[in-house]
Write a protein that binds this DNA or RNA. Structure first.
Lengths: 362, 362
DNA sequence: CTGTTAGCGCCTTCAT
DNA sequence: ATGAAGGCGCTAACAG
C-alpha cells in the first residue's frame, strides 16, 4: 500500500504541481498566494482546492531567495533564563507572527563578542532586522548590520547619539525614581545592589542615576555603597551581606533587579533585620514574584512585554521602507508596596552611634 | 565618497565575487566553506583572504534551497513567560547553535489548534524538526510533520505509544514522589493545586499520579481535593483559598507548579496558617525562587535545561539520518526543604474534630 | 584537488 | 486577468 517514494526522499509538491492540477500557470498560483485578490473567482477556487488536495506547503527558501524578503527577524539577548528578557521576546514573537514574520533568537551571555558572532549568523540566515539589548555593542557588529542593510533596534535603553533605533526606557531616570523615593522617606545611608556594569549600559545607568540623584540631594558619596552582582538570587544575598558589612548604617537598599532584591530579603531574614522597619528595599523589573514576597516588594515597573510589542510594531510598519532611526521611550513607574518605609527609630539610633564612632576615629 | 550603490539596493557579494578575487572557481569557495579540509593550503588562504576583504556573508536561503538542508529547528511551546519553558528553550538554543543550527520558536498559549498553525508555518520555513511540549496534539499536526519528513520531538512527557520521539520525564511518577513524601509524614487530608488539565497531559498525569498514589495507600478519595488553576501566582493563591474552604481539614498541599505554590504560601500567610506546622506544601519545577521562599519550598526538581540540551543532542546526532523513534527519560527528584513536616498537633486536633463532625453528619 | 554544469522552487518582469 | 521565461545564489554531480 505504500510506494517506493515513502522510503526515498519524497519529492516535495511544488507550485507547478498545484498549477497543473488547477489547470493554470505557476505564476497564477504564486499570485493567489501573495496577492489573493489579484486572481479571479473561478481560478482562485480551483487553486485553493488543488493546494488543499496536495497539501502544498510553500518553500520559504526559494521565496526568500527570489524575492529578497525573508520575513525573518533576529534577536540577540543576554539570556532567556531571565524572565524580563523572556517576556520581551514573548511579546516580540507574538506580535511578529501575527504579521507573518518569524523570530529567530540567540543568547549572548552578556558577551558582546559572542553577540557579534550571533549577529553574523543571523545575517547569514537572512534576518531583515536584528533586535539587540542595550546600546553597548562592538562597532563591527553595527557596521556589519549597516553594511548589509539589516535594520537594527536596541531595546531596554535609550541613546540619543546611537546610529540605530532605540525602543526602551530611561534607566537613569528609573533609578532616580528609586533614589527620590528612599530619600524622601528620610533615609540617609544607602546601598545599591547593582548588576554587573561591565559592557552593560543598563546596569551602569542605573548606578549613575541612583548615585547622582542622591548626591544632588546632598548625600555624601561616602554614604552610598555600591556592590555589583550577577542577576542570581544567591548573588543578591551575598551582595547584601557585603553591603551590610561594608556599612552597617545602611537603611535603604536599591537593587538593580528584583532577583537581587529577593536575595537581599533573604539575607535580611537571616540576620533578623526587619523590612521595612529596619531596612527599606526597592527592586527593579516588577517581576510577578515582586507582589508576593514577604513583605511585597516596592519596585520599578518595566514594560517588558510592551517593549517587545512596540519593537515588533516598528519592524512591521517600517519593514521594507526607509530605515530612519527612531527613538521610542516607554514609561517606567515606581510601584509602592511593602518594603519601603521611613527608617525605624532603632536603626536611627544605631546609625547615629555608628556615625559618631566613624567620625571620631580618623 | 559614496557611490550610487549606497542608495540603491547594495548588490550583495556572492560566492562568485569571492572566487574571482581568489582566482578560483565558485565551487572551490563553496567547498572551503563547507568542507574546509578539502581545499589545499594555497587556495584556501586566498579564499579566506578574499572572504575577509569582501566581507562575504553566505546566503542561507540559496544554500538551503540547493542542499535541501535548512539547519533550522522549530519549537512550539505554550508560553515563554514561564521560566520552565524559557529554560528549556535556552538550553536547546545554546546547544543547537554550537552545531550551526538555528532555533525558531512560536508560542501556542496552550492551544493545540494554534499549535497546528504554528507547525505549518515552521514547516514552510523549512524547519528540519519541530520540538513540541507534551504528547497531546492534533493528529493533523503529527500527520503534517510525518508527511513532510519533519522530525518531531515531544518534551516534558513520555508516551510509550507515541509515534514520535519523547524526551522528558515521568510526570505521574513525579507526582507519586510528592504523595509518598506527604503521606509518610503522616498527613491524612490532601489538596492538589493542579494546572489546567484540558489538553495538557503533564498537568493531568500529575493529578493522576498524586491521587492514585494516595488512594493506593488507603486515603479515601473524598479526602483529596483537587483545584485547577492557570500557572499564575494570583491564581495559585485563589485556588488555595478554594481548597481550604472546600475542606478545612487539609494539612498537605501539592502544587502542580512552584508558581502555584508561591500563591499557596501567600494565602497561608494571609490566613496566618503556619507552614509547615499547620500545612505542608510541595511544589513542582524547582524554580530559582523555590529556595528563597519563606520557608524554602520543598519541590520536585525538573531538569528543564538538561531537557533542552538532550533534545538538541538528539537532533544534532540524528540529523539527516534515519529518524527512528526514541525515548529519553530524565530523572526527577524531590528536593526536601522547609515547607514539609508532620502535621502539627493543633491541626490534628482540628482535623479530628472536623472528621467527627463530618462522619456524624450523614 | 579543482573546474564545469545544471537546477533547487519561486517570483517578477513582460507580454498577451 | 493570465501565461511564458529567466534567474535569485548556491551546491551536487561529474569530469578532469
Amino acid at each position: 500500500m505504500t510506494t517506493r517514494s515513502d522510503r526515498t526522499k519524497p519529492r516535495s509538491v511544488r507550485i507547478a504541481d498545484v498549477a497543473k492540477l488547477a489547470g493554470c500557470a505557476p505564476a497564477t498560483v504564486s499570485r493567489r498566494l501573495n496577492n489573493p485578490e489579484k486572481v479571479s473567482g473561478d481560478v482562485a477556487r480551483a487553486i485553493d482546492r488543488a493546494i488543499a488536495e496536495l497539501h502544498y506547503v510553500r518553500n520559504d527558501s526559494a521565496r526568500t531567495l527570489r524575492s529578497n524578503r525573508s520575513r525573518l527577524i533576529g534577536a540577540i539577548i543576554p539570556t532567556l533564563s531571565h524572565s524580563i528578557y523572556a517576556q520581551m521576546i514573548d511579546g516580540l514573537q507574538r506580535r511578529l507572527s501575527e504579521s507573518g514574520f518569524a523570530l529567530i533568537h540567540n543568547t549572548s551571555g552578556y558577551d558582546i563578542d559572542v553577540e557579534y558572532e550571533q549577529a553574523r549568523l543571523l545575517v547569514e540566515r537572512g534576518a531583515e532586522a536584528i533586535v539587540l539589548v542595550g546600546t553597548r555593542h562592538r562597532s563591527k557588529t553595527i557596521d556589519l548590520l549597516n553594511q548589509r542593510n539589516v535594520k537594527c533596534v536596541a531595546t531596554y535603553s535609550l541613546d540619543d547619539r546611537a546610529s540605530f533605533t532605540c525602543i526602551g526606557f530611561d534607566n537613569y531616570r528609573a533609578a532616580s525614581l528609586a533614589a527620590e523615593c528612599l530619600i524622601s522617606l528620610g533615609h540617609r545611608h544607602f546601598a545599591m545592589l547593582a548588576g554587573i556594569t561591565r559592557n552593560n549600559d543598563r546596569a551602569e545607568a542605573r548606578v549613575e542615576g541612583f548615585v547622582d540623584t542622591l548626591v544632588e540631594k546632598g548625600v555624601p558619596r561616602a554614604d552610598i555603597v555600591v556592590c555589583e552582582a550577577p542577576y542570581v538570587i544567591a548573588e543578591g544575598r551575598s551582595a547584601m551581606e557585603r553591603a551590610l558589612d561594608l556599612d552597617p548604617r545602611v537603611t535603604a537598599v536599591f537593587c538593580g533587579s528584583d532577583i537581587l532584591a529577593v536575595g537581599a530579603l533573604a539575607e535580611c531574614r537571616r540576620r533578623s533585620i526587619k523590612v521595612p522597619a529596619d531596612v527599606s528595599i526597592v527592586g527593579f523589573d516588577n517581576l510577578e514574584i515582586a507582589a508576593y514576597t514577604d513583605p511585597p516588594l516596592t519596585t520599578i515597573d518595566v514594560p517588558a512585554i510592551a517593549m517587545g510589542e512596540e519593537t515588533a510594531n516598528y519592524l512591521i510598519r517600517n519593514s521594507p521602507d526607509q530605515s530612519r532611526i527612531r527613538r521610542v521611550e516607554l514609561q517606567v513607574t515606581i510601584v509602592h508596596r511593602g518594603t519601603t518605609a521611613a527608617p525605624g527609630d532603632r536603626m536611627i539610633i544605631e546609625s547615629l552611634a555608628q556615625q559618631e564612632t566613624v567620625s571620631a576615629s580618623p
